[in-house]
Every structure is written in C-alpha cells, then in structure tokens.
Simulated assay, not measured.
Amino acid sequence: MSTQDSQQLAHSSGYALLSDRVMARISGPGTDKFVQGQFTQHVDEVTSERSLRAAACTHKGRAYCLTRLVRDDEDLLMDFDASQAEATMNHLKKYLMLFRGTSLEILPTARIIGLIGEASAASVAGDSAHALTQPGQTLQVGDSHLIRIENTADKAARYEWWQPTGEHPVPDDIPELAVEQWLASSISAGVPWLTEASQETYVPQMLNLQHLQGVHFKKGCYTGQEVIARMHFLGQLKKSLHRLSFNNTQQPPAVGAKLLADGKNVGEVVNAVMTGEHKGEMLAVMRHDASANALSIDGMDEASIKLEQLPYAVPEQQPSDT
C-alpha cells in the first residue's frame, strides 16, 4: 500500500459491503419487552427516525454482543458479527422463550452497506440525506434505512444503509471501498467491535459505549444492569477505550495483545488494522493513569505506539482534581 493510499484509507468516499455482519429481525407482541430486558438501550427511544447502539451482557455485566437497533414498522432489526451470530442468537433465544409469539430470525438476503462521505449518502437518498447531521438520525429510503453514524477523527461523514430485503443496488457513482477501509474508519471514529477473543471481557463503559449512544442509565432492569449501573453511579471506571496509532510493523497486533508501560500490563488491544505500509491504528482498553506513559505492545518490541485523540469526549479519561 502506498503512502498516498494509507493517508486516505480511513476517509475515502465510497461504499463497502459489510459482509462480516448479518441482520436479524425481532417480531411479535413481545418484541419491545424482550429487547428492553436484554439490552443496554431503552427501546422506547428507538424510533423510525432514530437508531441507537446497544449491548447485550452477561449477569456480570460483560458485553457478549454489540449491536444497533433499527425500528422497522412494528419490528426491530439488529446486526450481529457473522462469525458469532449463531451462538449469540442461541443465547438470546433462551430468554425469548418467555415471549410467546415473538421470534428472532436472521434475514438471509439482507445486507448492510457502509457509506463514507456526504456525497455517497446523497447518491442513495437525494437531498433528504443532508438532514442527517447527528449520529443515530435515520431516514427511510423505500423499505431500507439510511443511518447517520459517527464521523471519523478527520470529520468524514459515515452512514450505514440497512437493506432488510437486499434489493437496493448501490448507485454507480459511488466507488467501492475495501472492507479494511471501513474498519479503519470505525477505528478512527472510536467505534469498537467485538470478536470471539473479546466477548464477555468488557463492561460496556470500558468500550466507551455510553458515549456512543449505547447505554441508557435510567431504564429499568436488564441482564447485567446492576454491575453496569454501579460502575456508572459510583465512578468506578478505571479503564476505557483509547485510540492509538502504531508504526514499524508489518502486521497489526492481535486482539487481546497486551499494552505495556514500564513493563507492566496496562491494557489490551480490542481492534487493529493496517492503514499503510508498516503502520496502522488500533483501539485498546487501557488504564486511565497509563495514558501519559511510553507504551509498547507485548511481543512487538519493534513497533512504536502513539496515543491519538478520539473524535468524541470521554470525561472519565481526564485526570481527577482530587
């Protein structure tokens, strides 16, 4: 990859077919009650004009699923990592059994398309797309949903185009991007995703989900709520998601690779992608008191690490006055 390519990797305009994700539909009379009891988001705030992130957690408050909730008439749509979808759905269906007549099913022909750039969104939805200025704002396009999501650190606009039927072709004037470019844009935007190696590892706040419209602290009881609420209201969060760049390596660090400061483990890699020759970006959950130290990656002594700014505020990462 050339230097020019690497400089543009995270913010080139275009589209990427997110083939690593699948879409599911929850339908039936118990849809909202089921979601309310299993996810960190308040389901009443998910409307035809507003889509929100959410997590599903264990009883210990550890996230095993990060998803997005999209209102589709009386139903709710959500997405899963394709490699984890079957296991995640099997787990959720244990709770769904309590709601007679309510189902959770994968939509086999559905697809999710990532869009970067306001021009790409306008090609899909016309001038109406310009009304989408804030993360979560949603516009119905036929039977599909165009959702504004978080900008990259360079302020490139990003969107997701949810197609439950998969019948909407991408306009010819939108160039196709590699999936790696979309993943790089997500890291630049400070938006993590879970893999098999990171499931059930983090409380949602450690992944900054409360700053990504993913946690509602005033809703009723749900699985894992006690731990999540205690961490929030008692100020017990000691580590959270940071964005970092790395250089002088031919491959990205593995998920779960340890971050070291003065030889001590201060965090671990959540997501990483190469953005150019010998360089890339990553998201890592790291102790707040370690961010000012010189960092290294365990087992990658040649790599240099630099802390980068997230495009949204994380007050918990600021030094305490006390």
Rank of each mutant, 00 (worst) to 15 (best):
I228C: 08
V203D: 11
Q199C: 09
K238E: 12
V270L: 11
V269F: 06
Q225E: 05
A254K: 14
V215E: 14
L260A: 13
H211I: 00
V191I: 15
Q225I: 11
L237N: 10
I228V: 10
L237V: 10
S245P: 00
I228F: 09
Y202K: 04
Q251C: 15
Q251I: 09
L209V: 10
Q205M: 12
K238T: 10
T275W: 11
D262W: 07
L260T: 07
G263I: 14
T201V: 08
G224L: 13
V191W: 10
V269I: 05
N265Q: 14
G267K: 01
P204D: 11
Q251G: 10
T201K: 13
G256V: 03
G190P: 11
V269Y: 02
M274G: 03
Q210G: 13
A257M: 10
W193Y: 13
G224H: 06
T249Y: 00
V203Q: 07
S188Q: 06
A254L: 04
F246P: 05
L234S: 14
V269L: 01
S198G: 09
A197C: 01
M274V: 00
N247E: 15
T275G: 09
A272G: 12
L259F: 01
Q199N: 07
L241T: 05
I228T: 09
T195G: 14
P253H: 03
F246S: 01
H242C: 05
H242V: 03
V191E: 00
V215C: 04
F233D: 13
T275D: 08
P252L: 10
K218R: 15
C221P: 09
D262F: 12
